[in-house]
Simulated assay, not measured.
Amino acid sequence: MSKTFDMELFLAGALTGSHATRQRHLRQAMFIQAEIAERWQIETPWNWQRKHVAWFLEHRVAGRCAVTRYYYLLTVRLLARRLEKPWIFKFQAEI
């Protein structure tokens, strides 16, 4: 029997801001985790590579509005900071 990964505990030290902001980051991080787990069967962020997160941003949120893509980018940056990875992702606004 395996335990499920606790994203809230994983991000606890990195989350700052208002309650609503922390909840949004947590909700989006859990969605990112679920999408990557479904696509690559990688359950925990500790095993993610940059390509997994880049795939999420390019394929799963690419069709969303600019504000939504920006909020997901902020969550990805928070995850990268927590993982202590030097990943850089750019925000591409609609033209």
Rank of each mutant, 00 (worst) to 15 (best):
W55P: 14
A62Q: 07
E84W: 01
H19N: 08
W55R: 02
H19L: 07
G17P: 07
I88H: 14
Y72S: 06
M30N: 14
H59Y: 13
L15T: 15
R50M: 10
W55K: 03
F5C: 12
R82C: 14
E58I: 03
Y70E: 05
A20P: 00
L26W: 08
V53T: 06
L73F: 11
W48A: 10
A14P: 00
A14Y: 02
Y72N: 09
L11G: 03
A37S: 13
K90L: 10
Y71V: 06
L9W: 09
E43T: 10
E43F: 02
L15D: 05
F5H: 09
R24D: 11
A12S: 13
F10C: 06
N47T: 06
V53G: 06
W46T: 05
R27W: 15
W55C: 10
E94N: 11
L26M: 11
L74C: 12
L78N: 02
E84G: 02
Q92T: 13
Q33C: 04
F10E: 06
Q33K: 15
Q41F: 01
M30P: 00
S18Y: 01
A54F: 04
M30Y: 00
M7V: 15
R39M: 11
T21R: 10
Q23K: 13
I88N: 03
W46I: 07
E58F: 05
M1T: 13
F89S: 15
V53K: 05
T4G: 09
I36R: 01
T68G: 12
V67G: 08
E43V: 11
G17Q: 09
K3D: 08
A80R: 02
V61C: 06
Y71W: 07
Y70F: 10
E38K: 14
M1W: 08
T16P: 00
F89C: 12
L83Q: 03
Q28K: 01
R24Y: 08
